[in-house]
């Protein structure tokens, strides 16, 4: 008999509480401002100090094909999604496989704000203030077994709430995957919110991956399954167009998409006359993650 938690996901960290917590952090940052070098104290050392996009931009311009292929479709259609209750099936090469209620996960992890650059494979970019926890916390919770080499993820498939499941020609569920060391990296987070708001449904509520040095489609949304495995998992865009989308899909200005250049990007929010920006290697996270790929030919392993 499954244990049914009466607590809601929103009960775990009431908005008021985490708001207060941030005010405290902000206050502390203010106190130490004179001493602080670089970004304010209290903010994660992994956060960028770039100006984030507005909540409206972030939640109004999405690729989430389960809700349609247009950029505005998810914002229009995702309200139908039920995200409470929510649980994540963790299985494969773990010590404690099973169905984990989101409430239980969130009780066990430490969440914080991470302001990351976000680079879509379509050559546009945003800066997004995520709220969430490092994926390694979840993986440790489940106990990764020694032979595991990869982590596979799956998005919810619920035809009656997701119109794209019928209309878009993709083999559902949406699948993504990471190498275990990528998954364990402190930059890799499971996000639960944006700004001070719970994750909008069109952005992948209630729980989505964020891997800031990879193209956006790697950051799989509305996750219901996490599988530890010793084989490289299948990933949706690679299944669709293996020539265009590799398993790694690290942001790389030198490796073009077959149909467009990845050397530059359009920054969303800059208006009609915004200048294109040079795309940075690993989306600007080279220092943190380049070591994961040392010795690898990144043009071959794109």
């Amino acid at each position: 008999m499954a244990y049914k938690n009466v607590l809601k996901y929103s009960d775990v960290t009431p908005k008021a509480d985490y708001m207060n917590r941030r005010q405290l952090m902000g206050g502390a940052a203010g106190l130490f401002a004179g001493m602080a070098i670089g970004p304010a104290l209290g903010a994660s050392k992994y956060s960028t100090d770039a100006e984030p996009n507005t909540f409206e931009e972030i939640s109004g311009y999405n690729n989430f094909y389960e809700f349609g292929t247009g950029k505005e479709d998810p914002a229009r259609n995702a309200h139908r999604l039920t995200i409470d209750p929510w649980s994540v099936q963790i299985d494969g090469m773990v010590d404690k496989p099973g169905s984990y209620g989101l409430e239980d996960i969130l009780k066990a992890v430490t969440q914080e704000e991470r302001i990351y650059r976000f680079r879509c494979v379509e050559a546009w970019s945003m800066v997004i203030p995520w709220y969430g926890f490092e994926l390694n916390q979840l993986l440790k919770m489940a106990g990764v077994q020694s032979g595991a080499k990869y982590v596979a993820f799956e998005t919810l498939v619920r035809e009656e709430e997701m119109p794209g499941i019928r209309s878009v020609n993709i083999e559902w569920p949406y699948r993504e995957g990471l190498r275990l060391d990528e998954a364990m990296h402190p930059l890799t987070i499971m996000a639960t919110g944006i700004y001070d708001k719970p994750m909008p449904k069109q952005n992948g509520a209630p729980l989505r991956l964020v891997v800031p040095w990879k193209y956006g489609f790697k950051s799989i949304k509305s996750i219901v399954r996490v599988t530890l495995t010793d084989k490289q998992p299948q990933t949706t865009w690679n299944m669709l167009q293996p020539r265009e989308y590799g398993f790694y899909s690290n942001v790389n200005p030198e490796v073009s998409h077959p149909r467009w250049s990845q050397a530059t990007e359009r920054t969303i929010g800059g208006g009609v006359f915004a200048k294109r920006k040079e795309t940075l290697m690993f989306n600007g996270y080279e220092q943190e993650v380049a070591g994961l790929y040392s010795g690898m030919d990144l043009a071959k392993n794109f």
Binding site: E56, E57, G60, Y61, K71, E72, W124, R266, I268, G269, G271, V272, A274
Partner: peptide
């Protein structure tokens, strides 16, 4: 359409929309 794009009424990514 160009006027809509400049005034931000054509979507969040006005260049692509236009």
């Amino acid at each position: 359409l160009f006027y809509l794009a400049v005034s931000g009424a054509i979507g969040i990514d006005p260049v692509k929309s236009l």
